[in-house]
Amino acid sequence: MSALAVSGAIEAGLLFSLVALAVYLSFRVLNFPDLTVDGSFPLGAAATAVAIVNGIDPFVATAIGTVAGAAAGYVAGFLNVRFRILNLLAGILTMVALYSINLRVMGRPNISLYDHSTIFTPFEGVLDLGVWTNSAILLVIALAMKFLVDWFLATQVGLALRASGENPTMARAQSVDNNRMTLVGMTLSNGLVGLAGSLFAQSQGVADVSMGIGTIVIGLAALIIGETLLGPVRVVWATLGCLIGAVLYRFFIAAALSAGFLGIQAQDLNLVTAVVVAVAVILSQARRRLRLRLWPKLLGLLPRRQTQEG
């Protein structure tokens, strides 16, 4: 693989690590199977692209894209909380509706940003890292979001969110409003997705209405790979696993597409994705089974406390 291909894989991995963090919040913490991601990702890109084209500062435009994604997550959560629509169906309905909304926002299927300034533009002359400039900026952003998620989940609201997802009945007994936690979790999760879409559009120089297809699969793949490597026990390690898993996932995809002897072409991307996710799930389950087998044996090796009868 060339340096350009490696930097591109790392850049894409860091971008999708934000999606992995969002999937961790919704799937693991909140226990909400959210498919809104495939719609909120291009929504963040579309809102940012329209704002930049209309002369708004790129940093403000990025914030607009983030808020747009958060609004989409709130809608999905509201459908579930207010109208008791199944969480999976609420995400699907929101995702389907967002396709038309994204077309309305952009006014056309795609918007080019090649002749406009982005948040990466001010740093190009300062960092002067060549093909690694965007990767360095995205690394800082990804780490910042990782530490922000760690901090939030350690706050009182974050602990209530975790309790609501882990055991809603017990959380309700502790005066936690589960409906409110659902709205908070979905808003924050899709806010991260909107930020990822915004940065992706600025990095690639284009916002497209179909760019969100398969985003949820990528986020799940990164999450599962990270959990396989580091384990999902502690929040700090789980969020770090999201970053590492996303980068490794994109690196695997780039390596597979670059290996000419395998005969893999660009149209095989979805097949490669499915294989990578399946392998990650199998390895995760194998690791869990191995741990369950070894733990009783390790306990059996511990010396038993001798009891004396007086």
Rank of each mutant, 00 (worst) to 15 (best):
M1A: 10
L4H: 09
I10P: 05
E11N: 15
A12T: 14
G13Y: 02
L15C: 11
S17V: 05
L18Y: 05
V19A: 09
V19M: 06
A20T: 03
L25K: 04
V29D: 08
L30N: 12
L30C: 11
L30H: 07
F32P: 05
D34T: 09
T36E: 11
G39V: 09
S40D: 06
G44C: 04
A45F: 07
A46L: 06
V50N: 08
I52L: 11
V53D: 00
V53E: 08
G55P: 02
I56W: 01
F59Y: 15
V60I: 15
V67M: 02
V67D: 00
G69E: 01
A70C: 11
A76G: 08
G77S: 12
L79I: 10
N80D: 13
R84N: 09
N87D: 14
L89F: 13
A90N: 02
T94Y: 06
V96E: 10
R104M: 13
V105K: 05
M106H: 02
M106G: 03
P109H: 05
I111W: 03
S112P: 03
L113H: 01
Y114S: 13
D115G: 00
F120R: 03
F123V: 14
D128P: 00
A136F: 03
I137E: 02
L139H: 08
V140E: 01
I141K: 07
A142P: 02
L143Q: 02
F147I: 04
F152V: 11
L153V: 11
A154V: 08
A154Y: 13
Q156F: 10
G158A: 09
G158C: 05
A160Q: 15
E166C: 03
E166S: 15
E166H: 07
R172A: 15
V176Y: 10
N178F: 07
N178C: 14
R180G: 15
G185M: 12
M186H: 11
N190I: 01
G194P: 07
L195V: 04
G197Q: 02
S198I: 06
Q204I: 11
G205S: 12
V209K: 09
G214Y: 07
I216L: 15
V217W: 01
V217Q: 05
L220E: 01
A221G: 12
A221F: 01
E227G: 13
T228M: 09
G231M: 06
V233N: 12
R234H: 14
W237P: 00
W237T: 14
A238C: 08
G241M: 07
C242V: 01
R250H: 08
S258M: 06
G263M: 07
I264W: 00
Q265K: 09
Q267V: 13
A274V: 11
A274R: 06
V276E: 06
V277D: 04
A278R: 00
V281R: 03
S284F: 05
R289S: 10
L290I: 03
L290M: 06
R291C: 02
W295N: 13
W295C: 02
G300A: 15
T307G: 07
